[in-house]
Simulated assay, not measured.
Amino acid sequence: MNTWIDANSVLLQQTLTTLLMALSIQIPMRMGVFSFAGIGAFGIGGYTAAAAMIHLGWGTFPAIAAGVVFAGAVVYVLGLVVQRLNGLYMGMATIAFTLIVAVVAVNGGELTGGASGLFGALGDLTLGAVFLVAVVVVLLTQFTESGGLGRRIDAVREDPELANAMGIDVGKYRRYSFLVSGMVGGLAGGLTTLLRSTITPEEVNFHLVVLALTVIVVGGSRSWVGVLIGSVVFVWLPTWVAFVGEWEEFIYGILVVLAAVLLPDGILGILRGLWHRIRTRNTRTTPTAAGARDSAESDRTAEELEVAEP
């Protein structure tokens, strides 16, 4: 097992950072906010961590923390600016924000390395450390998916007017979704950058939006479990279909189209459906078996009474 982990440590790290990046979009979506600002936060967190390490000589985790805080603050301010937008307009505004981050990076001079980016920001990160960080984020995300908080978030997404009538401050939940999205996106960017030791403006672009959205759609948008499934599929897919050579991108596209058409709730939706059918079948079988036992006992009791009669 350890040999397999060592041989695939890069893919495992990439899976965890992709999970965090996709969560930065999935979390606001669960609150009904169609925002891609988490991808811009990915770039902000990555550049901040790299600049803090290269220019200021900071250590790995202080540099990552700086990226998380700065990205969260910037995206929260963005949320205040665009909070009146919804749907497609919100999506376009936040995509524009991501593109603006890339433009600022290109024109950032020595601070961002310009078009060439920053190099040499190699952090002291291990697979265990990245895994621990991802587990903490997942546990906090699970807290928002269950219990009273999870039900309030579902209400904010499904029926904002009803949620307001019930005393839930919909605007506050949506503003906080930008803050959390920015922090998680900044964390993903900082970890990715310090694992690779470099970041360039080309890495913070529309293709990351497509990747994160594809991960969410294929895996499932209603839970972090679906995001994890999608991350595993699309990080490991190139290794699974490497034998097809130049047809790799074609197969990738076919899988995405099939998932979008045939799996409206993602792979997680199929797994939940199977689990529900299994539980339903067991529930139906148990009362039947209990009824058979009761019937047999009734028959034995009747026979005993007949024998006992004179």
Rank of each mutant, 00 (worst) to 15 (best):
M1T: 09
W4M: 11
I5C: 02
A7W: 12
L12V: 10
Q14M: 15
L16H: 00
L19A: 03
L20K: 05
L20C: 11
M21F: 08
M21R: 10
M21P: 15
M21Q: 08
S24Y: 10
R30C: 00
I39L: 09
I39Q: 13
G40H: 10
G43P: 13
G45S: 08
G46Q: 09
A50F: 13
A52E: 02
L56D: 06
T60S: 01
I64G: 04
V69D: 02
A73V: 12
L78W: 02
Q83I: 01
Y89G: 05
F97T: 03
V103F: 14
L111H: 06
T112H: 03
G113Y: 00
G113W: 00
G117V: 05
F119E: 01
F119K: 08
T126I: 09
T126M: 11
L127R: 02
F131A: 15
F131E: 11
L132F: 01
V136G: 12
V137M: 00
L149R: 14
A155P: 14
A155S: 11
E158L: 06
D159Q: 15
P160V: 04
L162S: 14
N164S: 14
A165T: 14
Y173M: 03
F178L: 13
L179E: 07
V184H: 05
L187G: 05
L187F: 11
L191I: 13
L191Q: 08
T192N: 03
T192F: 10
T192G: 01
I199R: 05
P201Y: 08
N205P: 04
F206I: 12
L211N: 09
L211R: 04
A212T: 05
T214Q: 08
V217E: 04
G220K: 01
V227G: 10
V227K: 07
I229C: 00
G230H: 10
V232A: 06
L237K: 11
W240R: 06
A242L: 09
F243T: 11
V244G: 11
G245H: 02
G245Q: 04
W247N: 01
W247D: 02
E248I: 15
F250D: 00
V257A: 07
L258E: 10
A259Q: 04
V261W: 10
V261Q: 12
L263Y: 11
D265A: 13
L271G: 15
L274G: 10
L274T: 13
H276M: 04
H276S: 03
R277Q: 11
I278C: 11
R279S: 09
R284S: 06
T288A: 04
A296H: 12
L305I: 13
A308S: 12
